[in-house]
Design a protein around this nucleic acid. Structure first.
Length: 220
DNA sequence: TTATAGATTGCCT
DNA sequence: GGCAATCTATAAT
């Protein structure tokens, strides 16, 4: 966890996303979301995802077919689908499967690797003091634990990022592999939905403190 | 044209 | 644990 080297980042190829979203959601765990802006690098490891299966999935935005809002989902794989929800929050997805099929993966939680101060600023929080973080690692959890939170930390909005190709390091937002090893993966029902809620399409890194929906470490 | 639910979060009791 | 905030897409008038 402690040894992140930005020079090892390699963008994920288009083929990575040209598959069943359940496979992509699982394989994205351990990969890195990267934002570059003004010479600064934000990076965070993917630790929680959810798969949405397109027109066959009642919980998916693509269920009713293509609309202006969701058309990115029906396009080529590896592109950002960003939507605005509850009047407050943006959420980031990546399109999967070949053009014409609308599967996607929602990013639910990340573990910050680099640029924590900028993330805190974007979230309207005080910059985390290294000493305080040392004492209570749970402080960083508020930065990127939850789909709305991680989008805010990375400055992700629909006008700015919807439709962006996430497979190109030329872009200011992309997904990469930094060579990190495999992690133990768990699955569960998806969070916050009412339709098709029984399907176990949520995937997360077992035991990772940044997975959403868990209590912050009590004391120890 | 109006109503309502929504792939959430944070603050209040 | 409850609920308001605040915009959008879609359903209902």
């Amino acid at each position: 966890m402690g040894n992140f080297d930005p020079t090892r980042l390699r963008p994920l190829p288009r083929e990575f996303f040209d598959r069943d979203p359940r496979k992509v959601a699982r394989d994205l765990l351990g990969k890195v979301l990267v934002r570059r802006e003004r010479g600064r690098l934000l990076a965070a490891r993917v630790v929680e995802t959810e798969a949405y299966l397109g027109t066959e999935d009642p919980a998916a935005h693509a269920f009713a077919g293509p609309t202006e809002r969701n058309r990115v989902l029906f396009g080529p794989p590896g592109h950002a689908y960003v939507y605005f929800i509850y009047g407050n929050h943006h959420c980031l997805n990546v399109s999967c499967e070949p053009e014409g099929m609308a599967g996607c993966v929602l990013f639910r939680a990340l573990e910050p690797l680099q640029g924590e101060s900028a993330m805190a600023k974007a979230r309207g929080l005080a910059a985390p003091e290294p000493a305080a973080v040392q004492a209570r690692p749970g402080l960083l959890r508020h930065l990127t634990s939850g789909p709305g939170r991680l989008a805010e930390a990375f400055g992700i909005t629909r006008p700015r990022d919807n439709g962006k190709d996430l497979t190109s390091a030329e872009n200011d937002l992309f997904l990469a592999d930094d060579g990190a090893g495999k992690m133990k993966i768990e699955s569960s029902a998806r969070v916050g939905i009412t339709k098709a809620a029984e399907r176990r399409l949520r995937f997360y890194v077992e035991g990772n403190a940044f997975v959403s929906g868990k209590r912050v470490e009590s004391s120890k």
